[in-house]
Amino acid sequence: MSPQQKALILPKKRGNFKVGSRSIPSPGTGQLLVKIRSAALNPVDYKIRYTGIFVTHYPVILGVDIAGIVQELGEGVENFRKGDKVLAHGNFSIIDQGAFQQYALTFATFTAKIPSNQSFDSAATVPLGLNTAVAGLYGKNLGAGIHPPWVKSISDHEPKKPIVILGGSSSVGSYTIQLARLSGFYPVVTTASPNNEDLVMGYGATHFFDRHLSGNQLAAAISKVTDSPIRIVFDTISLPETQSVGWGLLAQNGILVLTLPASVKEDEGKGRKAVSTIGSPHLPHNHELFRSSWAMVEKWLSKGIIQPNNHEILPNGLEGIIGGLERMRMGQVSGTKLVAHPQETQ
């Protein structure tokens, strides 16, 4: 009998989570087997649980934010060794690659070493949030398509341009602010709850506004900060009401980047565009972009160029994820990433 591990299993569409046992997988070509020390929770996890979106085959193991220790190397893996501390972007579409279990397979291409100045818990807050920000800003298919700042270009000295990020205290929002700063945007305008103002300014926002402002009020406030047209709005919340606000801020031919399907429609002939980005490196059209960005992750974290999210540790290992997802669904988590320790499962 193959070695067993504990996993948080969703047995069927809109079913109830249960902690069960399953085999520990072996890595294939280009893969690592990682003993998961920390797994972070994301809104997509409870949305799948309650709506069944994105998943077609059950049982499924959710979660994509992985931090842990390399246990085995698959064929062709050269840049990692057994015992390395790593973070990685998992894949809930393949049961062996989900984060909510004690061991998972990751692809070396989308795995990075954790530098000594970061913990497993802080590193686990990075993958999906950062990847969604990368896809939304730099993706050519489902993003704004701007030039990545880590790739040299003859146009590196373009004049500074403004960007508006709705929901700056969210995980995606925090990484979008940091990448916008890295890309040279100015001003970097964001919205959040007033109690998260210091948080978003610490990430690099240059101007903060209360998320409760109406669309007209926000537009008026931004007009006092910059008279340049707003060509990019990144709506990390993407509810119909925030999409409407973002849509109204956009200049002619601007782009609204969303994390959920678009509810706005172009009806004024302004050439505005709304795109729903997807932060998965496993999609073929994202491979090249994420291959280059993941090569930078260790350096970014080591030098403090990218700061991980604030986090809270959930008790009771994998069992704690169930209550954590419910808190997120009820809107009881703000400015903080919830992190579980699979190895502490009883």
Rank of each mutant, 00 (worst) to 15 (best):
Y203W: 14
L239F: 12
P187R: 06
L301H: 09
Q307E: 11
R211M: 07
Q252Y: 07
H285Q: 12
Q243T: 04
T132L: 00
L260M: 14
V297N: 02
N216W: 05
I222N: 02
S171V: 15
A112E: 06
K13F: 08
G215D: 06
I313Y: 05
S119D: 10
D156L: 13
S238C: 06
A192Q: 06
G320A: 06
F208L: 09
L260Q: 13
L87N: 02
N42W: 07
G331M: 07
G304F: 02
A220T: 14
V297S: 03
L314I: 07
P187M: 07
Q252N: 07
V188K: 02
S193D: 05
I163N: 00
S183I: 03
H282K: 15
A219P: 01
N309M: 15
S214I: 09
F54T: 13
N79H: 15
K152H: 09
E197H: 14
R22V: 04
I163H: 01
K6S: 05
I146R: 00
F290S: 00
P194I: 09
L87A: 05
P25F: 06
G335W: 11
P342C: 01
N195S: 15
F80K: 12
L260E: 13
P284V: 13
S302D: 14
L289I: 10
H212R: 15
L283V: 11
P284D: 12
E319I: 02
S93A: 14
L250F: 12
V333R: 08
G204H: 10
V297F: 05
N316Q: 12
L8A: 02
K273D: 02
V70H: 01
D65K: 07
G215K: 12
L256M: 12
K12M: 06
Y103S: 03
N253E: 10
V60N: 05
V333H: 09
E319C: 01
K224V: 03
G320P: 02
S228L: 15
G136I: 01
L258A: 02
P115H: 10
G184N: 07
L258Q: 00
V257F: 05
Q102W: 01
L179V: 06
V172K: 02
P127L: 14
P25R: 06
S183H: 12
P308D: 03
F17L: 04
N310H: 15
E312C: 11
S183K: 04
P148Q: 03
I222P: 03
M296L: 10
G129P: 11
